[in-house]
Amino acid sequence: MSGKRVTFKNLWLAILLILPQLFLVFTFFYWPAGEALYWAFTLEPPFGGEQQWVGWQNFETVFADPLYWNSVKRSLLFAFSSTALAMGIGLLLASFVDRQLAGYKVYRFIYFWPYAVAAPAVGLAFRFIFAPDAGFVSAINVWFPGLWNPALDGFDAMVLIVLANAWSMVAYNFIFFLAGLQSIPRSLVEAGAMDGAGAVRRMRDLQLPLIAPTFFFLIVINITDSFVNSFGIVDITTGGGPARATDLMVFKIYSDGFKGKDYSLAAAQSLVLMLMVCALTFIQFRFVERRVHYS
């Protein structure tokens, strides 16, 4: 028996204590998920009445729709670019802080804030900052008229949501990278310097391999996050447009379900998305479990 585990002699007390949490998880996760499962395999008859079991039909409709594949493509593009950007910047900042430690506890604290900002608020901030006519970035349009306009240009719109999402994830990545870098003995990096490796080389050959578990963990977290939490940003900044350029999977579920009122199609899509996230989570657990330990 593990000596660290708290054990309750009173089983009823234990049940009582976890009941509220179980209730919340059930009400806001399992119940809606079950509901979605039900919707995904049924259809509502056009003139009312009982829901009808239709098997895989909803999924077939979804997979046959080129607009759905567009949203998958956009989502992957979004996920990979914002993950790369957020992790790259996070690592860069962490390596700066790692080298000069004065006051790093304060940095830790401050850099974490953006992660705590809700996605719609991030979206709002970015909408203002990057507004083509009045935002900070509008200066670009003064020098190069028409260069930046996320409302018209699909590429610009994608850049905008990638930046916004990356900004909110940088903090998280920074914290984890910093903790990882700090766990590497300083003398190891110094030995690298004595061996003639410059800062970039040391990062590539010594530090990154040693924080590989952290690195993989962050990749999965970032991709998962960009699949799930991007809704707020897209909704506030681009609304999926222009011309579906930013119609991410999670946003399409929302617009098909609540704007198009087709719950069954939306449910089928969310089931697919859920499976993808589950798969990622599974991969992550595999990596975390098999965390490479050197000593």
Binding site: P185, S187, L188, A191, G192, M194, L206, L210
Partner: peptide
Amino acid sequence: GCAMVFQNYALYPH
């Protein structure tokens, strides 16, 4: 042009 031997050896574990 110096080489150094550290107290804890500082070998690259990977």
